[in-house]
Amino acid sequence: MRKALIVGIDYYSHITNLGGCVNDALAVRGVLERNADGTLNFPTPNVLIGTNDTQPVTKTELKSAVRELFVDDSDVALFYFAGHGYLEDTGGYLCTSDSVDGDDGLALSEVMTFANQSSAKNKVIILDSCHGGSAGSNAIARTMTEISDGVTILTASTATQYALETGDGSGVFTRLFVDALNGAAANLVGDITPGSVYAHIDQSLGTWAQRPVFKTNVKKFVSLRKVDPPIALADLQALTTHFPTADHDFLLDPAYEPERSPGQENDPSIPPPDPEKNAIFQVLQKYVRVNLVRPVDAPHMWHAAMGSKSCELTVLGQHYWKLVSEGLI
């Protein structure tokens, strides 16, 4: 069972309204609800959006929804929030539509209590709000983080930073988060994990931009969404067939390459294409495209084949070779 609570608040009765949080929440719902192949991922997520004075999100409503999210032993309980955040010496807060001073919003310490005490196997908290990086911090020792087993926190900015918008109705962080879930952060088997999402967002932001924060206490990352992998699983599993060892040099010759340069078609010194070798070479080229294999002493695989050189596994290729050889893929 995978549960998600997705919250976006634009309307505030007493503090400045926002303009893109509802759009962000709906975008996150749209990408999380199903995997890329259409199968259900987070079915029927609970979505709270504060759009105007007739549809606010109150503190009572938000607290009740967060409690309900973490109340049972689901496989994944994911909480996404986009809206105002507030920070003072007692900690951070998620501002709701009825917030007046900021510290009357939902305390992040309460969110963390629900998550830390939850029996859900994986608790994922994603905050696109100012000062979200304070989540999980000890109220007394601010440099310490207290999160229980199975909890992961990903925030748009540090405890002291503001979360910025793109200018076209979306948060900078959520735009990158949605891109990551759409496949930009997928591994070679199509899984998107909190760690890969953070890496994508971190690499996409400049040194002087807001800095995302990632805190986790897990033994293994859970997949947040699956997309079509960049290489077929059968081809990936064939790594150990084509490369008997991780440091194997795969010797090539012109028979592997189906294409010939003008004037080479009738050259008796060049063996003709071999269909069986051509099929293997096609798989090797797929490996090259996803950085698993590289030609040795040649700029491209064509040159390696026509020059009777070789190809070898990259460092990433050796990593996936090990996973395949140990039966982990």
Rank of each mutant, 00 (worst) to 15 (best):
G38S: 03
L233D: 08
G19N: 09
H14P: 00
D202M: 07
A279Q: 14
Q161S: 13
D75F: 04
N122E: 03
P43T: 05
L18W: 02
V213I: 10
L32Y: 10
T16R: 10
S109L: 03
T145I: 13
N52C: 12
V28T: 10
R289S: 14
T314P: 08
L94F: 15
Q210H: 08
L181C: 12
D10K: 01
D75M: 06
A184Q: 12
R260I: 06
L233H: 13
L26G: 08
F243H: 10
D274T: 07
T39W: 05
G317K: 12
D53E: 10
K123I: 00
S129C: 15
G169F: 10
A27H: 09
T314S: 09
V22K: 05
S129Q: 11
M306I: 12
A305D: 14
P295N: 11
A304L: 08
K63P: 00
A25C: 06
V124A: 01
P244V: 04
A298C: 02
L69I: 00
S157Y: 10
V227C: 08
D149E: 15
P45F: 03
A4I: 00
Q55Y: 07
L87P: 04
Q282Y: 11
D297G: 05
N182R: 14
V71M: 02
G167V: 11
L26A: 05
D149P: 05
D247H: 13
A27Y: 00
A36W: 13
T240K: 14
T160H: 12
L188C: 12
D253C: 09
L106T: 02
D24A: 08
M301I: 08
A25K: 04
Y11A: 07
P262M: 11
L313R: 07
L48P: 10
G105P: 06
G190S: 10
T58A: 09
I201Y: 01
V218K: 13
N291L: 12
N278V: 15
G206C: 08
S97H: 08
T166P: 02
E88G: 11
I140G: 03
K215L: 06
I153T: 06
G317L: 07
A234V: 06
A77L: 01
S310Q: 13
K215R: 15
I140V: 12
F114D: 04
L106P: 02
Y256S: 13
D267C: 06
T174N: 09
W321M: 08
V7C: 02
E146S: 01
A304T: 10
N278W: 04
T44R: 06
D103A: 14
I126K: 02
S118C: 09
T207D: 09
L94E: 11
V31P: 02
I270D: 13
P56H: 04
L26F: 06
V315R: 13
R211T: 14
A156Y: 13
Q318G: 13
A25M: 04
A159Q: 11
V100C: 08
G307F: 12
M112Y: 04
A186P: 05
D104A: 13
K277V: 09
A135E: 03
F177G: 01
E33F: 00
A115D: 07
T113P: 00
P244E: 10
V197H: 05
S97T: 12
Y287W: 05
M1F: 01
G327M: 11
F177D: 03
V227W: 05
S109V: 01
I125N: 01
D247C: 05
V7R: 00
V222I: 15
G169A: 08
